[in-house]
């Protein structure tokens, strides 16, 4: 088994994209806490010192396949179409166009319909702008931003992520993966005073807590498996499914072998804003919901998300998982 460092995606982050922590954190202590958590993410990224930030934004919907931002120097004065009263966000980013083109090429090789977008004035979504401004304010790192294909379901999203790993390997680059997404995404239906913010409903709150519990245990694959149910119960149906966890788990490695850290969780205008970091662990999380060995008699947890018993020589939920994508990938 190759060492952990062999996987080109060194860490994953789930970050909210609403503009309040950037534009008016002082208006609500929770928004300020999210802002502070972004600062911690920034420090973690600097520690890793990746070659690029790979950003999958749920706030950039696309309908003609998947789109990949490839303008090397996008620059604009961004205004959110909903929270325009919070102000303008001028931005200038560095995009790894070379990598974007590679990602596009290798996505197509895997049968996907993708294209790069390189146009002055292309409307980069609020979430991608906010996240970059907060975790990469000096443009120390180049980024590549990926759209969320409205019509893609799990299979397509998973393959799209694999193409990202292909591209990182091809260019020998290390990266961190960033998902721009709220947990529950239902906003209040009326404008509220900033100090009155809360999660929209108890149901959303319960789902957010469940996601945080699992992610805090490093169980990314388990959360990904719940995506369809999360979509039905805790997401406003703007798109066909809740995809970011499918992308993230596929780009990082489809298992539960992570150290999960919930850096913050707060409401932003009713939506569940979680700042979550996932780094690679040597051992899978405990208490996994494995498929049963025998439906009549409980015989202990079974490893379905890690290497086979033969290769390990024993059955253990504390098994080691390879973080080399080539070791775990199934045949395409």
């Amino acid at each position: 088994m190759r060492p952990v460092a062999n996987h080109p995606v060194e860490a994953g982050f789930i970050l909210p994209g609403l503009p309040h922590p950037l534009l008016c954190p002082e208006d609500n202590p929770g928004w300020q806490k999210i802002r502070n958590a972004f600062n911690r993410v920034r420090a973690k990224i600097e520690e890793i010192n990746p070659d690029l930030l790979l950003i999958y934004s749920t706030m950039w919907p696309s309908v003609i396949g998947h789109q990949i931002q490839s303008n090397p120097n996008p620059e604009w004065k961004h205004v959110d179409e909903l929270f325009h009263n919070l102000g303008t966000i001028p931005y200038k980013f560095r995009v790894d166009a070379d990598f974007a083109n590679e990602y596009n090429k290798l996505s197509q090789k895997r049968g996907l319909h993708t294209r790069t977008v390189n146009y002055h004035g292309f409307p980069i979504d609020t979430g991608s702008v906010v996240v970059q401004k907060l975790v990469n304010p000096e443009n120390k790192y180049k980024a590549v931003i990926l759209s969320s294909n409205v019509y893609a379901d799990r299979a397509e999203t998973v393959v799209f992520a694999k193409a990202g790993v292909d591209a990182l390997q091809e260019q020998n680059k290390k990266s961190v993966a960033i998902v721009v997404s709220s947990l529950s995404n239902r906003l209040h239906e009326k404008f509220i005073p900033a100090n009155m913010d809360k999660i929209h409903s108890q149901k959303d709150e319960e789902w957010n807590r469940k996601m945080l519990e699992l992610l805090g245990e490093g169980r990314l694959e388990d959360v990904a498996q719940l995506s369809r149910q999360i979509q039905r119960e805790a997401r406003v149906r703007k798109v066909t499914s809740f995809k970011p966890m499918w992308w993230l788990v596929s780009v990082m490695g489809a298992h539960n072998c992570y150290n999960g850290e919930v850096l913050e969780y707060q409401p932003i205008y009713g939506a569940g804003a979680g700042v979550i970091a996932l780094t690679r662990a040597e051992h899978a999380a405990r208490n996994l919901e494995f498929d049963e060995e025998d439906p009549e008699k409980f015989a202990g947890d079974r490893n379905v998300l890690s290497l086979s018993a033969e290769s390990l020589g024993e059955m253990s939920s504390q098994s080691t998982v390879s973080h080399n994508p080539e070791d775990n990938e199934e045949d395409l």
Binding site: W60, P61, S62, I64, V117, Y119, H120, G121, F122, P123
Partner: peptide, 9 residues
């Protein structure tokens, strides 16, 4: 200003 269609740029 300049309007760029996000779906059909």
């Amino acid at each position: 200003s300049l309007s760029v269609d996000p779906v059909f740029p």
